[in-house]
Structure formats: structure tokens, C-alpha cells
Design a binder for these strands. Structure first.
Length: 982
RNA sequence: GCAGGGGUUCCCGAGUGGUCAAAGGGGGCGGACUCAAGAUCCGCUGUCAAGCGCUUCGCAGGUUCGAAUCCUGCCCCCUGCACCA
């Protein structure tokens, strides 16, 4: 069979007609994508329809989508835009899927910035905060986020913080509140104490000012009671690995033993905590933190006192930060006394060491220089004996290497029966058992986690609801007197420090609820992390004014936790740990039945933008100095992607971008720029190209809506593609792989539509069906455009109120319909790739393509091999035998070709496996179909191929049935025809 | 030091044993349309002698018929914690 075609096929003409109409007869109004008008219109429509309000409905499956609520600092930044674009897309997607979606928003509005701002401008933090909230709210609305605004809350509103106080009283009843005098972290510049979690490198987490220790009466929440549960439950929640690691690290549970070392000639005992009781026989000295109370007792009045005092003073004088920096230099002083190893009775010297931390464990360390590198260094410096009591190799004596062997090993040299030869946990257990028997110690667990210090000496926070009475002590404010409100008649002035609450007589002076005498209110307020530790529960029932939330609401919306929680990694320890603790404590208070607040956490990556960078100094600079040499070394500055920040000046204003491109484009850019957890780089050209993409989508949709073609050649294919796309899209969206989802909905769907037009067009009815599938896919990421087009398509119900069937779609014929088109694309692709070669080998211009499909016998062998493969035929064992029975194998002239082809079919060569293993569903469908014939298919599409390749004709026949152009007959395979140019 | 995550083509970034010279996007280049610009569309974007060629997924080895993918060692980057006993 030979086909020659110089005329475009029917389909091709069809496309020209459609194309023609679109570009010339359509009105200008319809062709313009006008995001401002569309977005305003639909935001109003959603609002009018209360489309995003959701209530408890036990008959429906819920989906609680939550973002870390913002601190209202005035304006929304790109980090917010990213965070909330992700959340909004997921909320909208889940609504489409039929879930009852709770998607609320609020403001974490207590805190120091408002207080400082009020001081600066001479107002009240309340006013500063509320005007900032107005600003953020309007930005959020401009982005079109689909919150249930009825549930909006602000933690600085007494309708919220009264429940902070209520819960605090509850915790007090439960014994979780404690007021005690303790050394606390004090930040001079913030004028308040800080929780442990808020101190990094001995600097304040907010202002980076140095933190110093101070003894004060403070309020604590006993979070340590929940340490084990907080740690163990990490295994059952879907948090990113690094977040889990940070929390584990922070809780810092270590198993070990407290071991008692009696002091010689004294009744005192040194209790040392160790994680390595198995090394007890290697103890050659004991080290105390200089602050340890025993030091003073032991050394007083001895010749060693002066040295000790020097060390202790040095440690006390240095901040902990400096101390860590100085600690390369391990220092210790002998205290003149000895302690006894409780198992061996050996006397070992007692030292004070600057590297022992008073606040961890017991502040005393048993030193084993043979198996701890720090102790090893110390022992060498002060010429203390080093004993090896663990062997690296079973049954052998320990090696002496000049370094400590810190791994687990087999016990040796214990000098007591029953220990040598024990390994690891067994060794530890044996030592603990012996200690317990002697009453000289016990197995124990240490935590790094401390109780949460939550009082702050600041104004703009929740007042701690307690009253100090001369005779009754510190007693709680009765529940009916809540809330204890912050006074509004407070004047903030610049330069004034301290807590204005303390000087506010109306607030401070009250009567004791118990005895009625005059009394003073507590003026400390709560850490703002307290506010955010349960706001997700309040959202479940935000309008309740008789309890923080009803049990029914909490149990419905919070069942299994918030389904998707999105926010920044900076809260990995503090907020997320506190919130987990709160949830468990409130569960134990009987307020709900939930154990973990967040079942899945997604930490969105940074939004970066270029900043000047000196590679030499490894420093990023403010964008202002772009183009100048490095201020430090004078080298030419390069550029590097860096987190958007005020200090670098590389921020991009969301408002300006929305104004320029519209909210949908900004959303698309954010979602397409990177998957949620990856960092993304801001790029002006990228957002521009995303805007072009929005226009391309818009015009494709308009074209589809106006399409009135009666019969379309690409109907089947386009609909098959849409089913395939639907399935992949649903999977990606369900997994929060938004980038991949958007790639399908906003890129591949357009490409397919355009391909269908080029290939002959689609009918009006198929086009509408395609749009009916496509437009809802556009909705989660770019809801405004989707609603507009959905309506234009004639739908009366908004997408915001539409539920789709998202179960997989598939027609039996899809594989073959899709496979054919793939085949065509591949043929064209291969033709292009050999074109250049052909041009070099041919004189004159190329005007035709010659295609030879595989010989008959190849197709027969291929389908037999596929069949045999399905039946698990052993090709290694029986392949050759089978081949010999084949007719094509008898012909001596083609025997070699048959062998070679068979190999390509069932074995493969080099890195490529045999075709029977690599053919996919579509290829297999084509090969086994009686309807698909390569020669027929190519000749039917010869016009398209010719016009696409820009040539005059395409000829096609089965190898052997025509001239063997360029010897391509031999190389042709089923679905991979030989292609030559002429 | 410990823990977690990384290193892929000009850039960003997908890819966790064979259909991989490696998706997609950005950028660049070329072309079509146009008086022109923008927009839009099409193509190219490791290499050559054009082949089921050669080289390439941080470096060096190993496992395998076959490695970007698995294993071992090393180097580098990011994040967090840090004389935590």
C-alpha cells in the first residue's frame, strides 16, 4: 500500500477554519483576560452566598484545613501569600471532593511589637493591633481566600483571652500550674523573662539580646508530665522528619542511671547521672558543676578553696554563651576530697569542671576517660589514670589507642564476677541491677525538656488570673469574675520601661475573693505562645460564649487532628510542642477526646529572591549596594538567592504583584514555583510567564465555549486525555503535591486542547465535556477565573458550591486512543531527529518522508512473545527452541534478522530491556488491537504529518512491500517504523 | 560533635533498579505571524563520525546482565541541637 498526500486532510482544514474564526470574528471584550473585574465579581458572589461557611454535620466527612495564623504586623508578605495559597487550594479541592471543610482564619495579636509600636507613637497597643488586623484582612480578601469569616478571632480580644484564663484555672485545678522561684532567663532589652524554648545560644529569640540568669518567682506549666507521651506519639503523626527530629531532640529523653558515689570521710553522697552505667568500672574521677552545692562544702577551708573560687567566679562571670565559646579550654580544679566507686570501693578524686552543666541531670558526672572523649582530654591534662573497661571485639582485651572508645562494647577488666563479656544493654542492665541491690543507685530517665515558664512581665498579653492576698496567699480569680481584662486607659510613652500594668492602680488593687481584704492582682501576663496553643480548638466553635468550645464541635472537627496544618518551620519546636501539650492536657481535663492536634503538618519552604553576595566573604548584602564592590574585601559582588527579608531589602510586595497581575496569577506562580515544602525563588520573568499562561488558559477556554463545530476528529482522544489527566490530578492534589497538580490543570490541559485543535479540532459537544472536566480542575489554584468560565459555560451553580465525583475515570478504549496519538507524536519526533542527518546526505531539498513499518513476521513474533510473557514463559530456557519452530526462522536470508529481533524483543541489549518488558499499557493495547494498523494509521494522518514537517508528501508501506529506502526496513520494529527522508 | 535534609543538565526542579540524554518550567537561540513592538504559536538547547554511538545526575569504589536510583567510604551545602554525661 502506498499513500501519497499533498493536500491537508479534512481535519487539518477544519482546524484552519476554527482558527480563523477565533482570531477574527470574536469580540474584543471576550478575548481580554481582566483579572481585576473577574476577581472582584466572584469574591462578592462567594461572600453573598456565604459559600465557605461550614457547620458540624455528623453525616458528612470533615476536613479541617488550617494555616498558622498571622501575627498582624500590618501587611501581608510573600510568606503569608505562599502559606495561605497552599491552604486555600487544599480547602477548595477538598470541598470539590465533597468534604465538609473547616477553613478558618484569625490573628495571633498579642505580643511585643504592638506594645513597642504604641510606645513609639504614643498610643495603645489595642489600637495599633486593630488597625493592623484591618490591613491584613483586606489583603487576605483580595487574594480570594475561602475562609469561614464567622469564625474569625483575635487572641487579644477578651472574648478569646477570657478562655485563656479559664483554661489556666482548669490547669491549676489539675495541678499543672506551679508558681515557684527559680533561676530564669531574663532579657534586658525585652524587659521580661523567656521560656527555655525562646533562648537560642543564650540570646533572646526575638531581639537577639543577651539573656542572663535571674532568680524570680514565676509561673510554670508542668509540661514535663507529658514528656513521654509527647515523645512517643511523634511516631504516629505525619510531620516532616526534621520537625520530628527537632522535637525528639528537644524533649531529649535519655535512659541511664543515677549512681551514688559516697564521699570519703563525709555523710554526703554525690549523685551522678549517666547514660553509660556499663562503663562504671572505668571511673577514675568525679566531676561536679562549679555551681553544685557540694563543691562549697567540700572545699571550704582547705588549701584548694582559692583555686575553686577562681574557677567558680570565672564561670559565674561569663555568660553561658561565652562559656561555651571558651569551653574549647576544659578546666577543672581538684577539690581535695575523694569519692568511692559504689561497686568496687575504689577511691577516686573529686573535681569541679567548667564543662559540667548544673541544670542537666544532677550536675555531677562520673568521669570515664577510657570511654568518653571529654573525660579523656581532662584526664590527660590533669594526669589522671585512664582505664579501658569495654572491648571493641568480643573476647579480646580492650585496645589502648590514645582516644576514648565511645561505642558500645563488651565489658572487661571489671574485677568483679558476672560482668566481663556482657554487651550493650545487657551490660547496662547488669550494672543497674547491682547498684539497686546495694542501694547505691537506680535506673532512671532524664529529660532535657523543662517545665514551660509562661509568665511575662509585659502588658500586651493575657493577664494571669490570680490575686495576691496578705493572709490567703496567691489565689485564683473565681471563674465568674473572668475575664480579667486589660485596661484601655494606659498611656504608653517612649523611653518608659517595665510593665505599665504594675503601676495601674485600678487594675492592681482589688479584694481577696476569699477573705475580702484588700489585695493585689498578679500583673504578669502570659507568654503569647499560650494563646496559639489552643486556637485551633476555639475555631471549632468560635462563637461559643459559655465555654471555650463545645465537646461536640471539638470532637467532630478535631477527630484525628487537624487534617492539614500548614506553616513555617520556625515553629517546629515551640508552637508545635506547646500545642501538642495543650491538646493532651485539655483532653485530660475532659474537654474533648483528641490526643494529637495535627495529623499532618506541611512546612512550606522559604520564598527567596536575589540579593548581592560576596563569594569570598560568604556574606549577603542589602540590594542597595548592588553594583558596588564588596564593602569588606572589595571583590566584585555576585548574586545569590536569599530569603526575602527587610534586612536584605529583597522583598517583593504581594500588593503590587496582585495589582499588576491579579490574585489568580500570583496564586498560580506561588503554587507552580515549587512544591509546598521546597524553597522557591522569586523571579519577575517567571511570574510574567505565569500571567501569559493564565491568558493562554483564558483564550483556550473562550475558544472552547464559542466552538460550534459539528463533528470533531479529536473528540475521543481529547476526552480520553481528560480522564487520564483527571486521575493524575486527583492523586497529586490529594497528596498536597500542588505543583504537580497545577502542572496538569494549568499546563498540560492547555497543551492537550491546543494539540486537539491542531489535529483537526473537537466538536462542540466534546469540547463542552472537556471544559466541564477542566474548569473545576482550575478552581483550587485559580478560583476566580474558574468561576467566571464555569458560569460562561452555562452552569448555574458556583464551583464554590459544587461537589464533583473524583473517583477514577477510565474508558476501555482509552489506552488505544491515547496510544495512537502517542504513536503519531513519536513518528513525527523521530522524523525530525533524523532530518538533519538526512539533509547532509542528500542534495537538494527534502520534500518527502518514507516510512516503513515492521515486517509481517515481526508483528507476529511480537504478539506471540507478549502472550508468552503473560503466561510466564521462561525465555532463557525455551526461547531458542520456540524460535526454531517459527516459519520466519526457516528462511536463511532473514534468519539473522529474526535472531536479532527476537533478542530485542525478549532480552534487550546493554541498558535496555527487551520490548516485552518495556511496552506500556498503551503500546500493548495497540499491538493487540485488531483495529490498529500502523500503515493505515499513518496514511490517514499523512496530511498532518506532511504539514507539521513542512514537506509535500508522506509515503508509507510495510517493510518488504516497497523500495527499501536508506536500508530502514531491517531496523523497523513494531511501533517503531523506519523513517527516511527524500 | 550529634541529629535531620540535601548535592541531577545554563538555572530552578521532577525522577528511588531497565520505557532515562533524564518530566516540567525559567532563561537562551532560531523560526512563523507582523510595518514594528507586544502577545501568540512552532522548533532547538550534552557531544560527535548520527549509532539501539559516546559522555553526563557531588567524588571514589562496589553490587548487578543493567545504576541518577541500591551498598561502602569520602567531600561539600542547608537546618536544628550542642561539653546533655
Amino acid at each position: 500500500m502506498r499513500v501519497s498526500s499533498a493536500v491537508p486532510s479534512i481535519g487539518f482544514l477544519n482546524w484552519l477554519i476554527v482558527h480563523h474564526r477565533c482570531t477574527h470574528t470574536r469580540g474584543q471584550v471576550m478575548t481580554n483576560y481582566d483579572p481585576d473585574a473577574i476577581e472582584a465579581r466572584w469574591q462578592a458572589a462567594w461572600n453573598d452566598a456565604s459559600a465557605f461557611e461550614s457547620d458540624v454535620d455528623l453525616s458528612r466527612q470533615k476536613f479541617y484545613c488550617l494555616e498558622m495564623f498571622p501575627y498582624p504586623s500590618g501587611q501581608m508578605h510573600m510568606g503569608h501569600v505562599r502559606n495561605y495559597s497552599i491552604g486555600d487550594s487544599m480547602a477548595r479541592f477538598r470541598r470539590l471532593a465533597g468534604f465538609n471543610v473547616l477553613y478558618p482564619m484569625g490573628y495571633d495579636s498579642f505580643g511585643m511589637p504592638a506594645e513597642n509600636a504604641a510606645r513609639r507613637i504614643g498610643g495603645h497597643p489595642h489600637d495599633v493591633t486593630w488597625s493592623n488586623i484591618e490591613g491584613i484582612r483586606s489583603d487576605l480578601n483580595r487574594m480570594g481566600f475561602s475562609y469561614d469569616w464567622r469564625r474569625e478571632l483575635a487572641t487579644s480580644d477578651s472574648s478569646y483571652y477570657r478562655w485563656n484564663q479559664w483554661i489556666f484555672l482548669k490547669f491549676h485545678e489539675m495541678g499543672l500550674v506551679e508558681r515557684r522561684t527559680a533561676p530564669v532567663n531574663w532579657c534586658d532589652s525585652c524587659d521580661t523573662v523567656l521560656a527555655n524554648e525562646q533562648v537560642k545560644n543564650n540570646r533572646c529569640w526575638r531581639c537577639a539580646g543577651e539573656v542572663r540568669q535571674k532568680d524570680m518567682a514565676q509561673w510554670f506549666l508542668k509540661m514535663t508530665k507529658y514528656a513521654d507521651e509527647l515523645l512517643d506519639e511523634l511516631d504516629h503523626i505525619e510531620f516532616p522528619e526534621n520537625v520530628k527530629a527537632m522535637q525528639r531532640n528537644w524533649i531529649g529523653r535519655s535512659h541511664g542511671a543515677d549512681i551514688h558515689f559516697p564521699i570519703v570521710d563525709s555523710d554526703d553522697v554525690i549523685k551522678a547521672f549517666t547514660t553509660r552505667p556499663d562503663t562504671i568500672f572505668g571511673v577514675t574521677f568525679v566531676t561536679l558543676a562549679p555551681e553544685h552545692t557540694l563543691c562549697e562544702n567540700l572545699v571550704a577551708g582547705t588549701e584548694f578553696e582559692e583555686n575553686y573560687r577562681k574557677l567558680a567566679d570565672e564561670c559565674a562571670r561569663l555568660s553561658e554563651f561565652d562559656r561555651i565559646n571558651m569551653l574549647r579550654d576544659k578546666k577543672g580544679v581538684f577539690l581535695g576530697r575523694y569519692a568511692t566507686n559504689p561497686l568496687t570501693g575504689t577511691k577516686v578524686p573529686i573535681y569541679a569542671g567548667n564543662f559540667v552543666v548544673a541544670s542537666y541531670g544532677t550536675g555531677a558526672v562520673m568521669a570515664v576517660p577510657g570511654h568518653d572523649q571529654r573525660d579523656h582530654d581532662f584526664a590527660k591534662k590533669y594526669e589522671i589514670p585512664i582505664l579501658q573497661v569495654l572491648s571493641e571485639d568480643e573476647g579480646k582485651d580492650p585496645k589502648v589507642t590514645g582516644r576514648a572508645f565511645e561505642g558500645l562494647g563488651w565489658m572487661a577488666n571489671s574485677g568483679l564476677p558476672g560482668f566481663d563479656g556482657l554487651y550493650g544493654d545487657n551490660a547496662k542492665a547488669a550494672v543497674i541491677e547491682a547498684l539497686e541491690k546495694e542501694g547505691m543507685g537506680a535506673g532512671t530517665i532524664q529529660y532535657r525538656l523543662k517545665d514551660w515558664l509562661l509568665s511575662r512581665q509585659r502588658f500586651w498579653g493575657t493577664p494571669i488570673p490570680f490575686i495576691h492576698c496578705q493572709s490567703c496567699g496567691v489565689i485564683p480569680v473565681p471563674e465568674e469574675d473572668l475575664p480579667v481584662e486589660l485596661p484601655l486607659d494606659v498611656v504608653f510613652t517612649e523611653g518608659e520601661s517595665g510593665n505599665p500594668l504594675a503601676n495601674h492602680h485600678g487594675f492592681v488593687n482589688t479584694n481577696c475573693p476569699s477573705c475580702g481584704a484588700t489585695a493585689k492582682r498578679e500583673t504578669d501576663t502570659m507568654d503569647t505562645f499560650y494563646d496559639s496553643s489552643w486556637y485551633f480548638l476555639r475555631f471549632a466553635d468560635a462563637l461559643n460564649d459559655s465555654t471555650p468550645f463545645s465537646k461536640e464541635s471539638a470532637d467532630y472537627w478535631m477527630e484525628g487532628g487537624v487534617d492539614l496544618y500548614i506553616g513555617g518551620i520556625e515553629h517546629a519546636v515551640m508552637h508545635l510542642l506547646y500545642a501538642r501539650f495543650f491538646t493532651k492536657a485539655l483532653r485530660d481535663a475532659g474537654l474533648h477526646n483528641v490526643s494529637e492536634p495535627f495529623s499532618r503538618l506541611v512546612c512550606q519552604g522559604m520564598v527567596n529572591a536575589p540579593a548581592p553576595f560576596c563569594a569570598e566573604c560568604n556574606v549577603e548584602y542589602h540590594v542597595d549596594i548592588e553594583g558596588t564592590p564588596c564593602p569588606t574585601c572589595g571583590n566584585t559582588l555576585g548574586s545569590r538567592s536569599a530569603k526575602m527579608s527587610k534586612s536584605l531589602g529583597n522583598t517583593v510586595s504581594p500588593e503590587i504583584m496582585i495589582e499588576k497581575y491579579g490574585a489568580d496569577t500570583v496564586r498560580l506562580f506561588i503554587l507552580f514555583g515549587a512544591n509546598p515544602e521546597a524553597g522557591m525563588d522569586w523571579s519577575d520573568s517567571a511570574i510574567d510567564s505565569n500571567h501569559r499562561q493564565m491568558r493562554a488558559i483564558h483564550s483556550a477556554l473562550i475558544q472552547g465555549i464559542e466552538n460550534d463545530v459539528g463533528v470533531g476528529t479529536m473528540d475521543e482522544w481529547l476526552l480520553a486525555r481528560s480522564r487520564q489527566a483527571h486521575n493524575n490530578w486527583t492523586d497529586n492534589m490529594s497528596n498536597v503535591s500542588l505543583r504537580d497538580g497545577v502542572m496538569i490543570s494549568h499546563f498540560e490541559m492547555v497543551t492537550d486542547w491546543q494539540w486537539a485543535q491542531r489535529r483537526g479540532g473537537v466538536s462542540a459537544s466534546a469540547g463542552r465535556e472537556y471544559l466541564n472536566h477542566w474548569i473545576p480542575m482550575l478552581y483550587p489554584a485559580t478560583p476566580h477565573l474558574a468561576e467566571e468560565m464555569w458560569e460562561m459555560l452555562g452552569n448555574k451553580t458556583m464551583l464554590a458550591q459544587t461537589i464533583l465525583n473524583l473517583s477514577p475515570r477510565q474508558n476501555d478504549s482509552d489506552a488505544i486512543v491515547l496510544g495512537q496519538e502517542e504513536y503519531l507524536k513519536r513518528v513525527i519526533d523521530r522524523a525530525r531527529s533524523v532530518r538533519e542527518l538526512a539533509e547532509r546526505h542528500t542534495e537538494g531539498t527534502l520534500s518527502a518522508v518514507n516510512i516503513q513499518t515492521a515486517n509481517d513476521w515481526k508483528e507476529i513474533l511480537a504478539s506471540q512473545a507478549i502472550q508468552m510473557h503473560n503466561d510466564d514463559f521462561d525465555f532463557k530456557a525455551g526461547g531458542n527452541k520456540f524460535l526454531q519452530t517459527q516459519k520466519c526462522f526457516q528462511d536463511e536470508s532473514t534468519k539473522g534478522d529474526v535472531m536479532q529481533f527476537w533478542r530485542a524483543l525478549v532480552v534487550g541489549q546493554k541498558k535496555r530491556r527487551g520490548r516485552i518488558y518495556t511496552w506500556g499499557e498503551q503500546e500493548l493495547a495497540l499491538l493487540s488491537s485488531s483495529e490498529f494498523d500502523e500503515v493505515d494509521f499513518i496514511s490517514n494522518n499523512a496530511g498532518f504529518i506532511a504539514s507539521t514537517l513542512g514537506i509535500e508528501s508522506v509515503e508509507v508501506y510495510r517493510a518488504g512491500e516497497g523500495e527499501d529506502v536508506a536500508g530502514k526496513a531491517r531496523t523497523s520494529l513494531p511501533l517503531e517504523p523506519g523513517i527516511a527522508w527524500r
